[in-house]
Simulated assay, not measured.
Amino acid sequence: MEEEHQEINNLVAELERTAPDDPRHDELVSRAFALIRQDIRDEEDLLLPRLQEALDRTRLRRLGSAWETVRRTAPTHPHPAVSRRPPGNAMAGVPLSAFDRARDLLPAGTHAPNRRTLAAVGAAALAAWLLYAAVRHRH
């Protein structure tokens, strides 16, 4: 499943860089949806029944609540180069989520800032947060 998720991330990232009139577009969409359908089948037929066998109702509900929290705070776009495992995914997830959610507010078709702009904005946000934390700590 992990490999399928990574391949889906790679395909979606490639689709985001591909114009709809690109000859590869339809092929990428078909492959992505085929993998998503397979992933859903794997999770519904294999993973979820195993979880139901292994966990009681209370633990399943806690897991569901934790999953919902993670889903609401996770990045909304694929980032294939970012680690999918802890602690790398958690460390990268917060700033990527903020960036993605800001990007989601842009009008459709607007390109995201390049890496240099993103790095500058991230550095400025970090500097502002550090300044805020230092001032707050003094009071």
Rank of each mutant, 00 (worst) to 15 (best):
M1A: 15
E2D: 12
E2A: 13
Q6G: 14
E7F: 07
I8Q: 07
L15P: 01
E16K: 15
R17L: 08
A19E: 09
A19C: 01
P20S: 11
P20N: 07
D26H: 05
D26K: 09
L28Q: 02
R31E: 12
A32W: 04
A32I: 00
F33K: 03
F33H: 02
L35A: 01
R37N: 05
R37P: 00
R37E: 10
I40H: 05
D42H: 13
D42R: 12
D42P: 00
E43A: 07
E43W: 06
E43Y: 09
E44Q: 10
D45C: 05
L46N: 10
P49G: 12
Q52C: 08
Q52F: 11
E53K: 15
E53P: 05
R62Y: 14
R62Q: 15
A66V: 12
A66N: 10
W67D: 01
E68K: 14
E68P: 00
V70W: 07
T73M: 12
P75H: 02
P78C: 09
P78E: 08
H79P: 00
P80Q: 05
A81P: 02
A81V: 14
A81C: 09
V82W: 07
R85V: 13
R85W: 13
P86T: 14
N89K: 12
A92L: 06
A92V: 00
G93Q: 06
G93R: 05
V94M: 06
L96Y: 01
S97Y: 04
R103I: 01
R103L: 11
D104F: 05
L105D: 08
L105S: 14
P107A: 10
G109S: 04
T110Q: 02
A112Y: 03
A112K: 03
A112P: 01
R115P: 00
R116V: 11
V121Q: 02
G122S: 13
A124V: 12
L126E: 01
L126S: 09
A127G: 11
Y132S: 03
V135F: 10
V135K: 03
R136L: 10
H137N: 07
R138P: 02
